[in-house]
Design a protein around this nucleic acid. Structure first.
Length: 580
RNA sequence: GCACCCAUAGCUCAGCUGGAUAGAGCGCUGCCCUCCGAAGGCAGAGGUCUGAGGUUCGAAUCCUCAUGGGUGCGCCA
C-alpha cells in the first residue's frame, strides 16, 4: 500500500508501452525514474522526472517525451491531469477518489500500514550500546542505545530480519580494574576504611556489590592477594554490572536479542581462527609501524608487531593485532567477533559506535571486507555527544570521577518516552543538546509533547464522538462515503499520510531513524493546523451534526492516529491518549 | 602531520540519499477561543546554504581545493 509506488508502476508501464510502439528506444535504464510529492502543492499531487532522465539516452527532447507520456498517463482513471512543466517535469494530479480511498486503506492495514517488504527478510545484525561492564550506563550510551533500538525497529518494519546485539567488553584490563574496585568495597563492607587510588572506580554503585560479595564469601578474601580473588571477583563483578546494565536498558525500553561476550573469544581458539582466515588471505605479517608524523609519542621506539594489512581494504595504515609482548590487542577480538557475525550468515552488519571511536571505522570495515570477501557490508554509525543543560548551565559527565550523569538520572527526571524521542530528533552524526527544562515543558518547543498532543487530540475527538453516539469502529467506518473529504487541508493531510510508506523505506535505506521523528512532527503540525481551522470553518471539524459526515471525518482522524502510533512505535515511544 | 565528522535564518535544527521560488521551532511584529483540548493555530519580517572551482538539463545535496570547528592517531578497551 504505497500510492507513490503504484503511480510509479503506472509511469513505468506507460514507458514500456511507448517502447513497444517505437516511441522510445527499447534499451533504457528506468531505475532513476522517480515519482515524488512536489515541494510546491501548486504543482500537483505527484511529479515524475521520467522525461528528463530519459531524454539523453533516448536522444529526444525532454519536453517531447513528457508530452507523449502525459497523453498516455491521462488515460488512466486514477490520473485527473498530467501537465508538463519547467524543463520537463511531469506534474500529475490524481483523481480525488484515489486520495479519499486512503484513510480506509490505512484503517484496514492498521499498525501495518507502511510496513514494507523492501528489506526482503535480509538478515541484519545491529550491534549497539556495547558499554564496558564496569558501571551503569551514562547519557552518552543512552543515545547510542536509543538510536540502535529505533534503527532496529525501523529495519524490522521495512522488512528486514533484525538481530539486536550487545558486545560485552569483558575481556580486557578494565574488568581487572573493576574487580579491584569491588574488592575495595568488599573490604569496606568488612569495616575497613579504604581509599580509591588513581585507576580504580570510586562510584557508589559498587557499594552494594561489595556488600553482596561479603554475603557470598564471608571474609574468605580479606587480607589475601590478588592471585586468590581476582579471577573470581572479576567474574562476579562483571555479571553484577551486566545485571545493572540490563536493568538500565529495560528502563529505557530496550531489549537485546543477543549478548555476545568478548571473553568467550579468548582461550577458545576463536581469535586464532579469525586471524588464520586473514593469514590464509595473505593479510597478516610481522613488521614495524612508522610513528605518526607530526605528533610523535615521547617514548616511541620502533617495535616489531604482528600486523593486519588493512591498507589492502581501504585503511590508511596497517593495524597491529598483537602487542610487542605477544598478547592480543583489543583489535584482535574485535576481528574475531566480526568474523563470527559474518559466519553467522548476516547479509548486512551495522555497528553503532560512540564518536570517540571514529578512528576505528576504517580498520573495522577493512576487517569485515577481508573476512567476508567483500560480500558483507558493514555500516558504522557514529553517535555524537549529548550535551546536557539545565537552567542554561551545562552538566559535566566523567566516568572516572564517578560523578557522571547516568541513564537513570535522565529517565527518572523526564521519562523514557521523552528521552527516546529527543535523542532521535537529530541525525546521529550531529551533536545533540539535551535540555532538561525543555524536555519537561509541555509546549510546541518540546517535540515529544507536540506529537503526543496531536494523538491525544484525536483520541479526545473519538471520545466526544462516542458520547454523541457515533460509531467509530473499523467495521462502522468501512462503508462510509469519504468523497466529502475534499478540502485542501484534508487532502493535504491525506497526502502526508500517503508519504509514510516512502519515508519508512528511505529512512531504512539510509539507516536514519531520526527521519521518522521529523516526519511525525510534520504530520502533527498538519493535524494541528487542520484542527484549528475548524475553529473558523465549522465544516472542517471532525464532529458534525450528520453522523455519516462525522464518520467520514473520523476516518481521516483515525488514519492520522494510526500513522502517529506506528511512527512512535518505531521510536519506542508510547502514544498518549490523554494529556492533563 | 594524517584520517574521519560537521558548517543551512539572530539561535537550535530539517531538507525525502541530484529536482521547480531552500523549510520548521525559538526569538521579533500583528492576529485567532460563544467554537471538536489556545498544551494550539494563522500572517509578516528574516538566507551570497562557510568560500572558490568542477561534474550536468538541474547542486544545499556529488567531486576537488581552501577556511573554521569537533574527534581520533602502536604496547587503553
Amino acid at each position: 500500500m504505497n500510492l507513490f509506488t503504484d503511480i510509479r508502476e503506472l509511469v513505468l508501464a506507460s514507458i514500456h508501452a511507448m517502447q513497444a510502439d517505437g516511441a522510445l528506444p527499447g534499451e533504457l535504464n528506468l531505475v532513476p525514474v522517480t515519482v515524488e510529492p512536489p515541494r510546491d502543492p501548486a504543482h500537483g499531487d505527484m511529479a515524475t522526472n521520467a522525461a528528463m532522465v530519459l531524454a539523453k539516452p533516448a536522444k529526444q527532447k525532454p519536453r517531447d517525451i513528457a508530452e507523449a507520456l502525459a497523453a498516455r498517463l491521462a488515460t488512466d482513471p486514477r490520473v485527473a491531469s498530467a501537465d508538463v512543466a519547467g524543463p520537463g517535469f511531469l506534474n500529475l494530479r490524481l483523481d480525488p477518489s484515489v486520495w479519499q480511498g486512503l484513510p480506509k486503506a490505512i484503517l484496514m492495514a492498521g499498525k501495518d500500514y507502511g510496513r514494507s517488504t523492501f528489506g526482503a527478510q535480509q538478515k541484519v545484525n545491529v550491534e549497539f550500546v556495547s558499554a564496558n561492564p564496569t558501571g551503569p550506563m551514562h547519557v552518552g550510551h543512552t543515545r547510542g542505545a536509543v538510536v540502535g533500538d529505533a534503527l532496529a525497529a525501523l529495519l524490522d518494519f521495512a522488512g528486514y530480519d533484525v538481530t539486536r546485539e550487545y558486545y560485552i567488553n569483558d575481556g580486557g584490563a578494565q574488568v581487572d580494574v573493576l574487580a579491584r574496585s569491588v574488592y575495595l568495597r568488599y573490604l569496606e563492607a568488612h569495616g575497613e576504611s579504604v581509599e580509591f587510588p588513581e585507576g580504580t572506580y570510586p562510584g557508589d554503585y559498587l557499594v552494594p556489590v561489595g556488600q553482596k560479595l561479603k554475603e557470598l564469601k564471608g571474609d574468605a578474601f580479606v587480607g589475601k592477594g590478588e592471585e586468590v580473588w581476582l579471577a573470581e571477583i572479576r567474574e562476579f563483578a562483571t555479571e553484577e554490572m551486566m545485571e545493572l546494565i540490563r536493568e538500565d536498558l529495560r528502563v529505557l525500553g530496550v531489549v537485546m536479542d543477543n549478548y555476545y561476550s568478548e571473553k568467550s573469544l579468548y582461550g577458545t581458539g576463536r581469535i586464532e581462527a579469525a586471524i588464520a582466515d586473514l593469514e590464509g588471505k595473505g593479510l597478516i605479517y610481522d613488521g614495524v609501524l612508522e610513528p605518526p608524523k607530526g605528533k610523535k609519542p615521547e617514548d616511541w621506539e620502533p617495535r616489531e608487531q604482528t600486523l593486519f594489512k588493512s591498507t589492502e581494504h581501504g585503511d590508511d595504515v596497517d593495524r597491529p593485532i598483537k602487542k610487542s609482548d605477544g598478547s592480543w590487542t583489543y583489535f584482535a577480538p574485535d576481528i574475531a567477533y566480526h568474523y563470527d557475525k559474518v559466519t553467522r550468515g548476516y547479509d548486512q552488519l551495522i555497528d553503532i559506535f560512540g564518536a570517540d571511536h571514529g578512528g576505528y571505522v576504517k580498520r573495522m570495515k577493512a576487517a569485515v571486507s577481508a573476512l567476508s570477501g567483500g560480500k558483507t557490508p558493514l555500516d558504522i554509525k557514529l553517535i555524537q555527544l549529548v550535551k546536557l543543560f539545565k537552567n542554561g548551565e551545562p552538566f559535566k559527565m566523567s566516568k572516572r570521577a564517578g560523578t557522571f550523569v547516568t541513564l537513570r538520572d535522565v529517565v527518572d527526571q523526564v521519562g523514557a518516552d521523552v528521552t527516546r524521542f529527543i535523542m532521535l530528533t537529530r541525525k546521529n552524526d550531529a551533536a545533540l543538546d539535551f535540555d532538561f527544562d525543555k524536555a519537561l515543558e509541555q509546549s510546541s518547543e518540546n517535540p515529544v509533547f507536540y506529537v503526543q498532543y496531536a494523538h491525544s487530540r484525536i483520541c479526545s475527538v473519538l471520545r466526544n464522538a462516542a458520547e454523541k453516539g457515533v460509531e467509530t469502529s473499523d467495521a462502522a467506518l468501512a462503508d462510509v462515503d469519504l468523497s466529502g473529504l475534499d478540502h485542501p487541508t484534508e487532502l493535504a493531510l491525506i497526502g502526508k499520510l500517503a508519504e509514510w510508506p516512502r519515508l519508512v523505506e528511505t529512512a531504512a535505506k539510509t539507516h536514519e531513524p531520526h527521519r521518522v521523528a521529523t516526519y511525525l512532527q510534520e504530520l502533527a503540525s498538519d493535524l494541528h493546523g487542520h484542527y484549528n481551522r475548524g475553529n473558523k470553518e465549522v465544516s472542517l471539524r471532525f464532529l458534525q451534526d450528520d453522523p455519516k459526515v462525522t464518520q467520514s471525518k473520523i476516518a481521516l482522524a483515525r488514519a492520522v492516529a494510526v500513522v502517529i502510533s506506528a511512527g512512535l512505535g518505531i521510536l519506542g515511544v508510547t502514544p498518549a491518549e490523554e494529556m492533563r
